Amino acid sequence: MAHHHLVLIIMMVLSAMGGCSGDTESFIFGGCSQVKFMPGTAYENSVNTLLTSLINSATFTNYNNNTLQPTPSSSSATLYGLYQCRGDLSNDRCSRCVERAVSQLGTLCLDACGGALQLEGCFVKYDNVSFLGVEDKTAVMKKCGPSIGLTSDAMARRDDVLANLEASDNTYRKSGSGNVLAVAQCTGDLSPSECQDCVSTAIQRLKMECGASTWGDMYLAKCYARYSEGGSYSRNTNDDSNHNDDEIEKTLAILIGLIAGVALIIVFLSFLSKVCEKHKGGK
């Protein structure tokens, strides 16, 4: 019985730890091309090489793209790829997010010639059709919160915050007023004017389609805009990371203590069992 409790405790604690560390790695949307490639071909090797290069690059920069030209003997297609991490992520968190996105792409888009995946903290895309530097305002994901949540004052603040986002000229943009916060970002391959056009479109659609919702997310193919009343965009990423590290350390300390306690119980029960057997043998 003690062994069963030990396994249960470990599973519960590891699950809790996964919830802490998975904030930037939570799934938002993904899609794959309908065209498939044959496993074991040169194209599969190219996909693996390209995605590995993106993971490696993410250890030192929040955005990069890569074009993989085929070798003359492989007769494979040219392959294009990019990743974009959220502008406030550290290199460490960016690389972990990209690695997680690539792993999920491998499952979601198995044998697909192209695929795209958006996690909370990063976006990864690859294809054999060039998309680098091409503006794309296709709506890929929209979510709105409760539609009767914002008061007229809160809506006015929301509109001001989104106007500030639209007025910014950065690739990654944050704004806030009171408890209304918003964020927007483009992929790094867009020019400043293309980014501005994409963000403006996302903001206008967000206001139109989410109305008085307490929060809203509008993801276009190359940019997104999001707002929230008292939502997650107010959190300081570095503080969160340190807090999560502290929580994980505390959790590990508790886990080690529990394991040690259960181990002592097992040893004690084993000792009692041997004592009982000796007494029975004596009789």
Rank of each mutant, 00 (worst) to 15 (best):
T49Q: 07
Y126L: 01
G261P: 06
R100D: 15
D240K: 05
R205E: 12
S213Q: 00
E247A: 11
T61S: 02
V13M: 10
D159Y: 08
P39V: 09
L105R: 06
D127W: 01
L54R: 02
G115Y: 05
E229P: 03
V7K: 06
L255F: 07
I266M: 02
Y83G: 01
C144D: 01
D245T: 10
C97S: 13
T151M: 01
Y233Q: 02
C276L: 05
L105P: 10
E249I: 11
V47W: 07
K174E: 15
C195N: 11
A163G: 11
T151R: 01
Y224H: 02
T78V: 09
L181H: 15
C32A: 14
L206E: 04
Y227N: 04
A2I: 05
S21E: 15
G188P: 08
S241F: 12
L264G: 10
N170Q: 15
D127H: 02
S177I: 10
A77S: 07
I266K: 00
C113K: 13
Y172W: 14
C144Y: 01
I256C: 07
Q118Y: 09
V262K: 00
W215E: 10
M208L: 05
I259E: 07
C113M: 13
S232I: 04
T71H: 00
L272D: 08
A139P: 04
T41Q: 12
C85I: 04
G176F: 13
S74G: 04
G133L: 02
L181Y: 14
Q104S: 15
G18W: 14
I265R: 00
D23C: 14
Q34M: 13
K174F: 15
L79Y: 02
G22M: 14
C195I: 13
L8W: 02
L14A: 11
G115N: 14
C210G: 03
R93W: 11
A182P: 03
R96M: 15
V161H: 03
D245L: 07
K142L: 11
V47L: 07
A221G: 08
D197W: 05
Y63F: 03
G216L: 04
E209G: 04
